[in-house]
Design a protein around this nucleic acid. Sequence first.
DNA 1: CGTGACTCTTTAGAGC
DNA 2: GCTCTAAAGAGTCACG
Lengths: 184, 184, 184, 184
Amino acid sequence: MTLNNSQARLFSFVQRIETLLEERKGINEGISDIKTEAKSAGFDNKVIMQMIRERAMSQAEREEWQSLCELYRATLGMLDGTPMSDNARRHMSRDEKDDREAGVDDMFDPTPEPEPAASPAEARGQGAEAFRSGKRVTENPFPAGDPARASWDEGWCSEAGSDGMDIPPEWRRSPKKAEKGDEA
Amino acid sequence: MTLNNSQARLFSFVQRIETLLEERKGINEGISDIKTEAKSAGFDNKVIMQMIRERAMSQAEREEWQSLCELYRATLGMLDGTPMSDNARRHMSRDEKDDREAGVDDMFDPTPEPEPAASPAEARGQGAEAFRSGKRVTENPFPAGDPARASWDEGWCSEAGSDGMDIPPEWRRSPKKAEKGDEA
Amino acid sequence: MTLNNSQARLFSFVQRIETLLEERKGINEGISDIKTEAKSAGFDNKVIMQMIRERAMSQAEREEWQSLCELYRATLGMLDGTPMSDNARRHMSRDEKDDREAGVDDMFDPTPEPEPAASPAEARGQGAEAFRSGKRVTENPFPAGDPARASWDEGWCSEAGSDGMDIPPEWRRSPKKAEKGDEA
Amino acid sequence: MTLNNSQARLFSFVQRIETLLEERKGINEGISDIKTEAKSAGFDNKVIMQMIRERAMSQAEREEWQSLCELYRATLGMLDGTPMSDNARRHMSRDEKDDREAGVDDMFDPTPEPEPAASPAEARGQGAEAFRSGKRVTENPFPAGDPARASWDEGWCSEAGSDGMDIPPEWRRSPKKAEKGDEA
DNA sequence: CGTGACTCTTTAGAGC
DNA sequence: GCTCTAAAGAGTCACG
């Protein structure tokens, strides 16, 4: 019997798809089983799935995504006391690298002079003023753990977004490269 | 090294899920390939997927679904010239089976008397009148191929849905049984 | 204050989207409410949604979709006793319209000669034979209500799909027209 | 005319749903328009949607979610140079609040003694050692901007997850409270 | 081809 | 502990 007829071919297509759908169903059940096990071990499956999503990105993609989120968060005043990460600061300063050697290198000053305590509002004002003075976001003077650090960030970003300039290039996302095998 | 620690267990869960997700991705690509092949062979993938869905139902479920669709279509005047199927007629008469032996058996009369030609509007009126006379939907006098057959159905169903009665039981879907291995 | 700055524009976009999402949420709740009401009135919401989908199609699209489903069903032997509709027969014969005036017109013969009773297997064989004799699917001799009618269809379609021909054109879906305002 | 009949009620349900679907379609188009506008203004819509999602959470939910993500990230060695946030440290120390007054208050020491420069590997080892010494994650000695800060976190978290203990309570998500109007 | 929307399946949460 | 409901995710389809 030749396969070259409509009926047999249709049957073939239908059955091959059904087989694969069946296998997929089995895999989905396997995933559910693992999640059940993880849950009863005390893990949070939603967070686990988020980790899996992040592991699927290249490190560069991951950093860019998180940097943009932090930038937008700071601009919208949603930092909630969490200062921006160094990666985000670096990301925001990447276009100035020709000016100074820049970003990450001089971002860490091992012996900062102690900054006097500042209220959130004061720190916000200082951040805004720092932007107006041409300072970069990497120059936030407050150390980790200081609640003023996040406020300064919000002030700086808010001011950076307020002075009538167009969207600066670091707000834009890098176009995806051809990403050859970076899923490892 | 004992597996009984949070870090190793977390890693394990993450990797097991990732493996399965990877397999699932492969299967999805296989399905897509088959669809591409079917499409270029001239088949309509949407219809193929519909067939697969229907093959996954038991025959009873399939018939009930189609009967309900036809019933609603007739009531909404959307038959477009397609008379209801015998299955749907039978489905709609299932609650009267105690009255008469019923439905399918006497639905087919091999020697019907010829019905004089009727316009759609006339046939619709006759269907409505038939309902009022207590006739069942299985008693549509027009033969297959007669355009009046669908119109009679619409008239009957419309009248059946119009006389202030509550929703009759055959409009309701049968509750799903525990369905033990009925996917054959 | 000028709106021409990043921060204010970002806020604006965010809030406008949030407003619309909020409205959409309200609408979705409205839909859910109606479905709840319909369900408690005894209707089947899945069927209702199907009707809405069909009402959104033009009559021609609707008929083509259903015809293709019936054709595939017949080929796969899934008619379950439901003969194909006249629309589907017409659809399958549309490419022969030049031969004879065609399809619907002569599909209904008000005085068919009575066909002797046939078992499903016999009817199936007769359908296949009819195809081989060059008969069209519109010439199914069994009347509505006769269980043999569907079997004849299955036989005819199965044979039509089995003779090594390529997929006939009526299996293919018509390309969508520009459909200008046909949603009425 | 009484509405108390099947046909009219079905029509009513169908049309009411259709109306709402139509409105929803309009809203979706509005959202698309705004996104198009935002995109051409240089914003990243994906990030905007993420911000909207976060704005819909209460601050407590947002912080817990991000803390758990950071904790898992640290355990899986995915910090990529971004130290954990103070919120996450606080979250992880919340069950020790009875021991010492705790967490946020003493987390910020305005005059830390300068820490000698450390390589990532050294810092990781110091973090692990710190955990074994009973130190809390809030006691990371490296300042913001120091690349060693994140490494110390990874070491600490990794060790915390490795010592055969059961999942500590702070890994678990807080059960959702009845949340009466906390979306502000 | 890539994005968005809609449906449906699965999963998490609440109540008995 | 189990069921039921509501929400989230994945998949598919259509549009630009």
